[in-house]
Design a protein around this nucleic acid. Structure first.
Length: 566
RNA sequence: UGGGGUGUGGUGUAACAGGUAACACAGCAGAUUCUGGUUCUGUAAUUAGGGGUUCGAUUCCUCUCACCCCAGCCA
């Protein structure tokens, strides 16, 4: 369902690239890149950047590079590289070739750095971090120049070479760009280009003792790869003058790439901070990086989100420079639209209540006769066909579908009322068995043999249709129901700590009874449990059927109850 | 506090060489329905505020206000 072109979401970057094409700015080339740092897993926030960079490149006949921005040996890991490629592939944007790495440009970067030193545009500073930070000044207060700022070129070069050779300890000195300590933009107050790190880099090993900072590496990597449009999030806006400054002072192999910032994707009830996400995993709040409650791509996959729905969502929301937070309901509506079209319908009873049909026939041995009824696999897709489902006189129905004392507008089963069991028969509740506490533990009913298939020859109507499962043939399955991990729309809005808004009951595990066909659903497939929602098949540790609720169906009855309680 | 960025219904996104605000989600009302699903119809609600220019301003000018980002050897 492509958005109506007349009302397509805005994308000022598309307009900008179109202009560039018209004016032949980069010789008509468009080349983008997606530059994750391999120190965590990709999440919904990245999804926007991924589709934006890929779609734009494709639309204008260019390429999108996957480049790992691996300039920090302390935090990065090959496992994250592999995971990112896996996630990207699932999402629908597999890397077009071998992934690229900023660490492959360390030599070039270093050569350029010496060039800057020789040009008197960079110097080595051996002051400690606190001093450098204090000298940077503050908002509205100019900075103070380092006493080493005017060190002779030869001495800078010697020091830089020894930094590289590993002659100095971690943090002993840095290489700084010599720009302007009075600049109103703090980023231009002699920013750091290299720091000393003796840690082991996951790709370059122990070859390097100095590592470039983001600012010193990013624009240069873009230039090396021939990137034309370097898209990043809003917080880098104040870095753009620095991005340009480095490029302007270097002998570039290609046109100078241009950085454009856009607002990152935020969702209600969701956090995307890598650090916080890691903490959720470390603290055991969730089971792991693919816990279906997380916004990581692998979690969404496990939860059953179709990648196509995620893609359509990211395209639909467009690109702007306004800090905003989308309602997660919008994403869910894309998931429902896709799944409504594609998911097979199945019957599953999440909170089983025994229903006994008192006039159901028994065989010679006295057991209830088993019949097979034909049920439609997907009313939205006639090619999906039908299936046979066992039905008998002892069934399970949903606990919520029977009330001794029905509230207003309740039109499910209640004593004396006739309802339809989907695709099977009309049944009328006669009475119910309760336990000592007054809880209903069994419903007794009669059926009308003339209504086989679910309709009455006399044309009489019934107010509701309910799902069911035959007790003897039902399969046990664990069903995980998920609520939002954070109950607040903006986690942490009140206290500043998102964890204060954690819903302790965000996952509920149920012992469900499901129709036999559900035992065979391959892990990863998503089916609709009729009247309940979409569920992604999985297996428990010991191989038993497990289903994760992807998203519930729109629930009018829940809305009615909410209004009644108000 | 200096600099930069951003303000359109509940949420998000459109319209803008100035022509009388639209789309989606969410909401509400109803119709259809063997899923209280889907589908369909209808409905309410928006230009941060004040001045100006103009026949006419979301769009141009101006002042004010609010929010976000920047003082890592993170990215």
């Amino acid at each position: 369902m492509a958005p109506d072109p007349d009302n397509a979401a805005g994308n000022f970057i598309r307009d900008l690239i179109a202009d560039d094409q018209q004016q032949n700015t980069f010789g008509g080339r468009v080349h983008t890149r997606f530059p994750p740092e391999p120190n965590g897993y990709l999440h919904v926030g990245h999804a926007k950047a991924i589709s934006l960079n890929n779609e734009l490149a494709q639309e204008f006949g260019g390429d999108c590079n996957l480049r790992f921005d691996d300039t920090n040996p302390d935090t990065e890991d090959m496992a994250f590289v592999e995971a990112a490629i896996e996630d990207l592939t699932w999402f629908g944007y597999p890397p077009s070739g071998d992934p690229l790495y900023a660490s492959d440009y360390f030599d070039q970067l270093y050569t350029w750095a010496e060039g800057l030193v020789e040009a008197g545009l960079a110097y080595v500073d051996e002051q400690d971090g606190d001093t450098i930070s204090a000298q940077r000044g503050g908002f509205g207060q100019p900075g103070v120049e380092s006493p080493h700022r005017d060190r002779p070129v030869a001495e800078n070069l010697d020091l830089l070479r020894r930094m590289r050779a590993g002659d100095f300890a971690d943090n002993a000195m840095v290489l700084r760009a010599k720009i302007d300590m009075q600049h109103e933009n703090m980023q231009l107050r002699d920013p750091i280009m290299y720091r000393i790190r003796h840690g082991h880099h996951y790709r370059t090993g122990d070859e390097w003792s100095i590592y470039p900072t983001y600012d010193w590496a990013h624009g240069q990597s873009d230039a090396i790869e021939g990137i034309t449009h370097s898209l990043c999030t809003l917080e880098f806006d104040s870095h753009r003058p620095l991005y340009d400054w480095f490029l302007e002072h270097l002998p570039l192999p290609s046109d100078q790439p241009r950085q454009t910032e856009f607002a990152r994707l935020e969702l209600t009830h969701t956090i995307t901070s890598k650090r916080k996400l890691a903490q959720l995993v470390a603290d055991g709040v969730v089971d792991g990086w693919d816990d279906p409650r997380l916004p990581t791509l692998r979690a969404l996959r496990r939860r059953g989100y179709p990648p196509s729905a995620l893609r359509e969502f990211t395209e639909f929301i467009g690109v702007a420079r306004t800090n905003s937070r989308h309602e997660i309901e919008l994403l869910e509506s894309f998931v429902r639209t896709e799944l409504n079209r594609t998911a097979l319908r199945r019957l599953a009873v999440l909170r089983p209540l025994r229903l006994v049909i008192t006039n159901w026939p028994t065989d010679e041995a006295g057991n209830p006769v088993v019949e097979y009824v034909d049920l439609v696999n997907n009313p939205e897709d006639s090619d999906a066909g039908t299936r046979q489902v066992p039905f008998s006189g002892e069934l399970y129905i949903e606990h919520d579908d029977f009330k001794l004392d029905p509230p207003p507008k309740y039109y499910r089963l209640t004593p004396g009322r006739e309802v339809r069991l989907r695709g099977a028969y009309f049944v009328t509740a006669t009475d119910a068995v309760t336990d000592d506490a007054g809880n209903v533990i069994e419903v007794r009913a009669t059926y009308d043999p003339d209504t086989r298939g679910g309709s009455s020859p006399d044309g009489r109507k019934v107010k509701s249709t309910m799902h069911w499962v035959s007790a003897a043939e039902a399969v046990d399955a664990t069903v995980a129901l998920y609520e939002r991990l954070f109950s607040a729309e903006v986690p942490g809005a009140d206290t500043g700590d998102p964890f204060d808004d954690l819903d302790p009951n965000s996952r509920e595990l149920l012992a469900a009874k499901v129709e036999p066909a559900l035992a065979e659903v391959p892990a990863g497939d998503v089916v609709q449990f009729e009247r309940l929602g979409y569920f992604a098949a999985d297996r428990t540790a010991d191989g038993a059927p497990l289903f994760h609720r992807t998203v519930g169906l729109r629930d009018e009855w829940a809305n009615i109850q909410k209004r009644q309680n108000r």
